[in-house]
Design a protein around this nucleic acid. Sequence first.
DNA 1: TCACAATACCTTATGTCGTAAGGAGTTTCA
DNA 2: TGAAACTCCTTACGACATAAGGTATTGTGA
Lengths: 258, 258
Amino acid sequence: MVVYAGQGDPQRTLALLWRASSAGPARPARGPKPALTVDAILNAAIAVADESGLDGLSMRAVGERLGHTAMSLYTYVPTKRELIDLMYDQAHAGLARTEPSGGWRAETEAWADDLQACYLRHPWLLQVSHARPVLGPHEQAVLERVLRVLGPAELPSATVRAVVSSLFSLVRGSAQSIAEARSAAGSTGTPDQEWWSLRSRLMREIVPDFAERFPHSTLLAAQPPPDGADQWERMARDAFTGGLAILLDGLERHSTSG
Amino acid sequence: MVVYAGQGDPQRTLALLWRASSAGPARPARGPKPALTVDAILNAAIAVADESGLDGLSMRAVGERLGHTAMSLYTYVPTKRELIDLMYDQAHAGLARTEPSGGWRAETEAWADDLQACYLRHPWLLQVSHARPVLGPHEQAVLERVLRVLGPAELPSATVRAVVSSLFSLVRGSAQSIAEARSAAGSTGTPDQEWWSLRSRLMREIVPDFAERFPHSTLLAAQPPPDGADQWERMARDAFTGGLAILLDGLERHSTSG
DNA sequence: TCACAATACCTTATGTCGTAAGGAGTTTCA
DNA sequence: TGAAACTCCTTACGACATAAGGTATTGTGA
């Protein structure tokens, strides 16, 4: 289930996200020197989430990975929700920056590929709601890049908003499909084709009138998909490149400099 | 966080999803008459989730709403995960069926609007991963409808797959934005404009060099957005209709009968 | 008719979680 | 040289999913 953005003290959250020193001195006057930093905690938490998913992400697990207790984290981070918000932003720091020179269309595709790769490196990102009211610096940088890339297309601002939002949806949705394909393949261990034919047999047994009730679905399923052990991931990838191409085709109509 | 599809006994899950009687007799030979049904449990669970979100959905809450205990549910449903899978499918049963007569484009838009409305009626749907290996009957019906609607466009099957997957991503992504806008508006109680200007003031304080670091983002934010108390939801809706239009524009290039 | 098998639902128990409360030790300022 | 301010810890609490097993209820076969 999606973790929604934390709703604690917005000032504190913002300051943490942007690592601002304005909301308090950098080092408090008295007391022992902190053994941890927010960044160290984020790295540990991201490592835990990469290994065990969001379900495996507990305050205890993060604390232990740092040689500390769960409670020690609360000195640096108000709640688990805010920790996840910070992780979400931090994970976007690792985004590659492939910038081909081939016009805005190629650059947009490169941006989408980079973002998708980031999601697939940290699949738990897909379990965190992205529809957040405020962005952290790294998410903001991702947004800034696609806006810069789309600049030469000279689109009206409403179109820019629409296309950027659509691009995020496409990248995220396809990454979800790919991640699900991988997780299914990994957890069952059986190649996709075998798994698929088993599923079909079961369906024929349980829903014998499927073909009559869902003729269009049946027809589409009969069309040749890509084959191979990773056919599910391949299909998801093809759907992504195809969908992106269609969207950008449509966009070229609106662009003054196609 | 996203709840992934349950991975229990796939036969049992499939049989439950499709309410198949093939995996066991409809009424067991002996024993007390069941006081509940899977459908009653699903309706109660959906009501709980509609009221309190997925976070508020506990086996106890569902059981108590039915005048029973949490454990009694386990007679009908193997785990909470499978319950959520069943809820996910069931919620799609309430999808409206607006079918204008204006060609595949208008019908596709109507389908997208209906699906988005369904997501917004049950926002917790957006917290459940949709990238599931098997569909229930109601999800399948939603898919079937868009395939039927797209039929007259006479697209190659790879294109159909791409556009359908993109459509789902777009609808889901926009619904997420709208739901987030509503939840923010509902929880703070302040009109969007006020909230937004407060946020801007905070940002100027915490990240004074924002405009230099993110010139394109700054420029876009300065473009006039729709105004009003619900400006955030309006923006998300505009982005959706705009993105959908762009996608369908692109699709018309591929269609033999535009 | 009656014992028993099969079942529904319950109480209880276990282990996990986030995090509140408050204590002990450390560092720096007055 | 206190004492304030801080970090980190132990302990505790209530919520959660769900395992284990008990009890009551129903229909079947003798």
